[in-house]
């Protein structure tokens, strides 16, 4: 790879996004910062409404009215994509060097176009290939994502594909222009577990063979553990904890992360009860002044009325909490024990 120097391929700095709705100003993102190095897989984990998809949309330039980026910056290899020149550059990057796989493969393909037409369109537009070249490349791509009989499949319509196959087509489209960064927004949520496993394996394969950087957006910690090197946990529009997958899973610092890990069902867990985080995330219409997790946190104190600043952790990650690494849930110790096996 030409860029061996440690410039992140994508860097997001203190991004704030607001949505001006009928009921008031919704603060979708409240200061999100992260970076992705070349060839790295970063997971953005969070519940619905935590802002993980808004982050992806912001990077892809898909925030439309009533939403707007109010402050912060998005940098591609060190250059801002939000300045006027940057926006021009961004338009040429998106779909080519920077591409995205959406959650729902059932609605993201045009039902009136054949699979081949989808691929040929993208390849001709971005790679400036001739029609026959584009068709040949399309066949190769379908083969690369594990679709059998690609030549015949090119002439078929989306309705003739199953969910998993459609998601493969989406991935083929996303990698068609040899992107450097792929944003996958819940790529397997609509799929069966077995198909999910295949799609994840496909992503892992592609990453290895193409040196792709991936931002994987998900609510499922299980997926994260198997695929990603780094994890950023989002809650109520900000990143509350970030670090390498190994340290986050083994030694979560933030009470929310600890809670999320212990409430993820495990196959080897013989207990009769699932453990849960009581309550619900706060509304981003009137976000709390202090720590957003305060109302659900078992170890919250007076200190948490003011917003905790981001601080580095000994393991090289970062966390926004006044009392990091404090075991917040009585049974976490037990969970990690099961964990270590």
């Amino acid at each position: 790879m030409a860029y061996a120097q440690p410039t992140p391929i994508l860097e997001v700095r203190d991004l704030h996004v607001e949505f001006d709705t009928m009921s008031g100003l919704v603060q979708g993102l409240r200061g999100v910062s992260f970076s992705v190095m070349p060839g790295e897989t970063l997971a953005l984990v969070g519940e619905s409404g935590s802002g993980k998809s808004v982050t992806a949309q912001a990077v892809m330039g898909l925030i439309g009215l009533p939403g707007s980026i109010v402050s912060g910056d998005i940098l591609w290899k060190g250059q801002s994509l939000l300045t006027p020149e940057g926006q021009k550059k961004a338009a040429s990057l998106r779909g080519k060097s920077l591409s995205m796989v959406f959650q729902d493969p059932m609605t993201s393909l045009n039902p009136l176009m054949t699979i081949g037409a989808h691929l040929v369109e993208v390849l001709r537009r971005h790679m400036k290939l001739s029609k026959p070249q584009a068709f040949a490349r399309g066949v190769e791509l379908l083969e690369a994502v594990g679709i059998t009989e690609p030549r015949r499949r090119m002439a078929q319509y989306p309705h003739e594909f199953s969910g998993g196959m459609r998601q493969r087509v989406m991935i083929a489209l996303a990698i068609a222009c040899e992107p450097e960064l792929l944003i996958a927004d819940e790529p397997t949520t609509a799929l069966d577990v077995t198909i999910q496993a295949q799609v994840l394996d496909l992503l892992a394969d592609l990453q290895k063979s193409m040196g792709l950087s991936i931002v994987l957006i998900t609510h499922d910690l299980g997926i994260v553990a198997g695929l990603c090197e780094r994890v950023a946990v989002m809650y109520a529009g900000s990143i509350v904890e970030a670090g390498s997958a190994a340290t986050v899973f083994e030694q979560a610092e933030h009470p929310y992360t600890q809670g999320l890990i212990r409430s993820t069902p495990r196959l080897d867990d013989r207990r009769d009860r699932l453990v849960s985080i009581e309550g619900a995330p706060p509304s981003l219409l009137h976000p709390p002044k202090g720590c957003a997790f305060q109302s659900r946190c078992p170890v919250a104190s007076r200190q948490c009325d003011t917003k905790p600043a981001r601080q580095e952790t000994p393991a090289g990650g970062s966390v926004s909490c006044w009392t990091p690494s404090l075991p917040a849930w009585a049974d976490v110790a037990k969970t990690t024990e099961v964990h270590a096996r």
């Binding site: 577990v193 999910q196 295949q198 394996d201 394969d205 553990a225 198997g226 196959l267």
Partner: peptide, 30 residues
């Protein structure tokens, strides 16, 4: 067994290494 192996484990030591531990399921539904 396939269904069990397909559930992603929240444990980084169970890393996916692309296809090696993938469940063989592709054509079941089709």
């Amino acid at each position: 067994k396939v269904l069990l192996s397909a559930v992603p484990e929240p444990d980084p030591s169970h890393r996916r290494n692309g296809g090696v531990n993938a469940p063989k399921t592709l054509p079941t539904q089709t």
